[in-house]
């Protein structure tokens, strides 16, 4: 399996990369690990004329805490996220999510920025980043802006990026005390992409009721989404089985589930419900535990 011919660019600064992107326009694709792009190029489903490899740009690979958020450089590999002590301490669900991506080779090469910009509707990160209410720092010809995760995945393989823009950082706010999160994934047995993946985030208030809850869902629909109806049902409620059951049934409300060889729409809807409940149960236990 060999790619169609293309020109390879390896800029050494973000400015050069953006200038190249601007100049080459639609003919160019950004390479940031290549674990999704290279396979589709080998299948010739994508035939970009130009490939702009961000790998030569210094300073885009880091995980650090600053101003109430954990900031992850776009070129940070899944393996680095998985192994990060800071994340294990402050946002363990993100390390947990990274550990479930693909296989070791994919995790060693694939990057968080590449993954979110590719916006595969069955990728793992979006579910968790939606549930954690992450923001994406985006740099382009017109400067820098941040986009909330809830607005970043409008459609299949579509990220809310304008021409010439590149994701440079993922910002995840640190959750308050009494919070917990869990990512539950049902992987397809072939590629390990999620048939459905649900991340639940729960924050309890002092009385033990749910201050806020967020559910990010991947794999089920043609783009990752927040299960807002379910979140509303949880808001202010007592965290108990009956409430979780009801909220889980609302996860796919207003959502059109997709179908493929790994699962029908009906089965995906069912998995959303089962995994949401399991994620909520685990998130609750973690919220209570710490």
């Amino acid at each position: 399996m060999v790619c169609a011919p293309f020109t390879y660019h390896r800029p050494s600064s973000l400015r050069q990369a953006i200038a190249l992107l601007q100049r080459l326009g639609e003919e160019a694709k950004v390479l940031a690990g290549g674990q999704s792009l290279i396979p589709v190029m080998k299948m010739r489903l994508a035939q970009p004329q130009h490939l702009i490899d961000l790998g030569g740009i210094q300073g885009l690979s880091y995980i650090r805490e600053a101003r109430g958020a954990v900031r992850i450089g776009a070129l940070t590999t899944h393996a680095e996220v998985e192994a990060s002590d800071l994340l294990k301490r402050r946002l363990p669900v993100l390390a947990e999510t990274a550990s479930l991506i693909g296989d070791m080779q994919v995790r060693n090469r694939g990057t968080i920025g590449g993954s979110v910009a590719h916006a595969d509707p069955a990728a793992d990160y979006p579910a968790t980043l939606l549930a954690l209410d992450a923001r994406f720092k985006v740099v382009g010809p017109e400067g820098t802006r941040t986009v909330p995760a809830s607005q970043f995945f409008p459609g299949p393989f579509t990220a809310a990026l304008k021409p010439g823009e590149v994701v440079t950082e993922v910002q995840v706010p640190l959750p308050p005390q009494g919070s917990g999160a869990s990512y539950q994934k049902f992987a397809n047995k072939a590629s390990r992409f999620a048939v459905v993946g649900v991340c639940a985030f729960i924050s309890l208030n002092a009385r033990g009721t749910i201050r806020s809850a967020r559910l990010g869902v991947t794999g089920a629909a043609d783009h990752p989404f927040r299960a807002t109806a379910a979140e509303e049902a949880l808001q202010g409620a007592r965290p108990e089985e009956r409430v979780f059951q009801r909220a889980s049934r609302l996860v796919t409300q207003g959502v059109e589930c997709v179908a493929d060889v790994h699962g029908s729409a009906e089965y995906r809807a069912w998995l959303c419900q089962v995994l949401a409940r399991r994620a909520l149960e685990t998130a609750l236990a973690r919220a209570r535990g710490g």
């Binding site: 396979p39 299948m43 296989d103 397809n188 047995k189 072939a190 590629s191 992409f193 493929d260 060889v261 790994h262």
Partner: peptide
């Protein structure tokens, strides 16, 4: 028994045409 299955659609298109959609077990499975 559990994983592998060639799927053709009604037009004879091979839907399981790569390792992305044809499940071969790895040791963990």
């Amino acid at each position: 028994d559990l994983y592998e299955e060639v799927v053709y659609d009604q037009n004879g298109q091979l839907l399981t045409n790569s390792l992305m959609n044809y499940a071969v077990p790895n040791p963990a499975m």
